[in-house]
Design a binder for these strands. Structure first.
Length: 234
DNA sequence: GCGACAG
DNA sequence: ATCTTGTCGC
């Protein structure tokens, strides 16, 4: 899939919204993946007051050495001038270009990618995780720290418990994600299918990638690298 | 017109 | 997202 001319954010919204509507829904979803050898995590951070966009990708070997014990086999950082402001619902146009550039520098092509943000739990069912998956042509899962759209009940208190995230669609109410208790006694994370995967499989992978913290390892490590918290410690 | 609103 | 120290709790 090629790139899109949406750099002029003063004009981008209308085009972006039309593009998202066109791309969403025509994605086939399966409940299993081909053999997985690598799982990647992606996140975007900012430098210099937001002037610079910093994309980080961390590739982990699959399966882990032990439960929750993952080995980082490659990682990449790509910096570029920020091209759009943050607009709820249009996050992908701000973050995907930089993320793709970071992926271009990798020698490995992960079979699964976890993204910090929503998948189909988005107004037009095409959040940043879905969008990135289409351009990478890889299965993706959205793991967000807060809600963008949808209604939900409180999930159970045990790790792995989850409550469905609902929203109204053209054909009535639909399940667009899961509010997952990734760790006991902590605010849940919002998991939603990005590209190609169905909800149950997405939740299964996120749970399988949990370490000792709230966020799954792929996203947590990418988060640290994007925010320079991996070296910022003194 | 008044909220809500991924990162 | 980012600006930022200590502090409460397992």
């Amino acid at each position: 899939m090629s790139s899109t001319p949406l750099h002029d954010w003063e004009l981008a919204p209308a085009e972006a919204i039309a593009l998202q509507r066109r791309l969403a829904g025509r994605v086939e979803r399966v409940d299993r993946l081909d053999p997985v050898r690598h799982v990647a995590g992606v996140d975007i951070g900012f430098e210099q007051g937001g002037e610079i966009t910093r994309a980080a990708v961390v590739v982990l070997a699959w399966p882990p050495a032990a439960e929750g014990d993952f080995v980082v086999v490659e990682q990449a950082v790509h910096r570029e001038p920020t091209r759009m402001p943050y607009i709820p619902g249009l996050l992908s146009f701000r973050e995907v270009p930089a993320a793709l550039a970071a992926f271009d520098t990798l020698t490995i092509r992960p079979e699964l990618v976890m993204v910090d943000g929503q998948g189909i739990a988005h107004p037009r069912r095409l959040g940043v995780a879905s969008h990135l998956g289409l351009w990478l042509d890889r299965p993706t899962i959205g793991v967000a720290k807060s809600r963008l759209v949808g209604r939900h009940g409180e999930p159970g208190t045990e790790r792995g418990d989850w409550a469905p995230l609902h929203d109204d669609g053209p054909g009535g109410e639909e399940v667009i994600g899961a509010v997952l208790r990734s760790r006991q006694g902590v605010k849940p994370v919002f998991v939603s299918p990005g590209h190609r995967l169905c909800l149950e499989t997405s939740v299964g992978w996120v749970v399988a990638c949990l370490g000792k913290t709230k966020l799954p390892e792929p996203t947590r490590l990418a988060d640290r690298l994007a925010s320079r918290r991996d070296q910022k410690r003194r």
